[in-house]
Design a protein around this nucleic acid. Structure first.
Lengths: 212, 212
DNA sequence: CTTTTAACACCTAGGTGTAAAATT
DNA sequence: AATTTTACACCTAGGTGTTAAAAG
């Protein structure tokens, strides 16, 4: 399924006339398996997993390749990224294990006529800058463990409109959403929902993120 | 609206490892305005138009750029091309005048690192091969003039399924479609619907066309 | 017991010809 | 009278959480 909320970034400092690919991948935060403890409302370590020798799949932004000028003029949204827990996936989706913690990385890749970047499967050795943001860390699930996540998804994702409170006056009745009976639902979780906050691997980062 | 049936081509003779853009545009067949004479079932000249000094818009195939190998391995479909009669269009659609004859052209453009082909608005001076096919000529309309065109669209376009004969057994009742009362409908006409026929500007053409 | 899968109703988003109204 | 525009019902295509069943 799609990642929601999606990763959205702004880029600065590119050469306006140069061509760039921009891509995203998702890497494990640790090698732990987690479980959600409902009565204490937190994720706790539930075991170890071996994440070694798996190269994460790269999702290339569909606007790629594009000039630095154009990239910098718009918000770059990865709202079509799809996640799956199927290790045999053949549709190019990003493969993750459920009940694990992950962090998206955004890569800015300078066009290099020596390589065929049209359908790169892995990152080039040079000409790449990578960024990630602590606030976009998330835990994967196949069924929501947390009512607040469900509420966030229903409120913010246009495709979940059918599950919003049927009351005509939005705002007045928002609180009622909390009274929905809890059931184990479906889809991958995505904890981050920061708004225009700053963070990541570089303190003078030309890339900033915001929740989609 | 979309062009339907769409132009679909196969390409041969490209360099497998070289990068190419493939694009389509639509050029006037003549400078005549036409009207449809219903009782004789044919288009007749109804006046003159000046097509000069308008550069046709280019639609770049969304898979561009792509290696010759990949282009040659698939059928190249232009089924997302959109036509409009709005001369002020700002969505990049191909602008045509209604009641005129046109012919699509397919362009194979070799990647050239000297130019930014990422969002070309016009054809480069070199490194371009162009092809067109007599059987893809069509006449633009805002309302269908010809029952057979309406039938073809309803039968072949999945989005027009709602207008197909409600009879459960397709095939047996096909003939009934002819009994629909004729009314002036909407959308741009597109005469060509050849199936795997050969033609075009070059007798040893590496590009062949088929109706979508 | 926990977690995953699959079918589903309900949405968004947008491509059809239709029919009536508006324009020329 | 001929042509174009607009609103619309009816589709395709696919993204939601829900739910019950299956799997572990």
């Amino acid at each position: 399924r799609r990642m929601f909320p999606s990763v959205r970034v702004k880029v600065k400092g590119l050469e306006p006339l140069k061509q760039y690919y921009i891509a995203i991948d998702v890497v494990p935060v640790d090698s732990k398996r987690y479980r959600y403890v409902y009565h204490s409302s937190q994720w706790m370590v539930a075991g170890n997993t071996d994440h070694s020798c798996i190269t994460p799949r790269l999702y290339i932004h569909p606007d790629s390749p594009c000039s630095g000028e154009t990239w910098m003029r718009q918000i770059i949204s990865f709202d079509r990224v799809k996640l799956t827990n199927n290790e045999m996936d053949d549709k190019g989706h990003i493969i993750l294990q459920s009940m694990h913690k992950y962090k998206p990385r955004v890569h800015v890749i300078a066009q290099d006529s020596r390589f065929d970047l049209a359908q790169i499967q892995s990152l080039p050795a040079e000409g790449v800058q990578s960024f990630s943001f602590q606030e976009t860390e998330f835990t994967t699930v196949t069924a929501y463990q947390n009512q607040q996540i469900t509420k966030l998804k229903i409120d913010r994702n246009p495709f979940a409109k059918g599950f919003r409170d049927p009351g005509r006056n939005r705002g007045v009745l928002d609180g009622l959403l909390e009274t929905y009976p809890w059931r184990p639902p479906l889809a991958l979780d995505f904890k981050a929902f920061g708004a225009d906050s700053q963070g990541g691997s570089s303190s003078s980062s030309p890339v900033t993120s915001s929740g989609g």
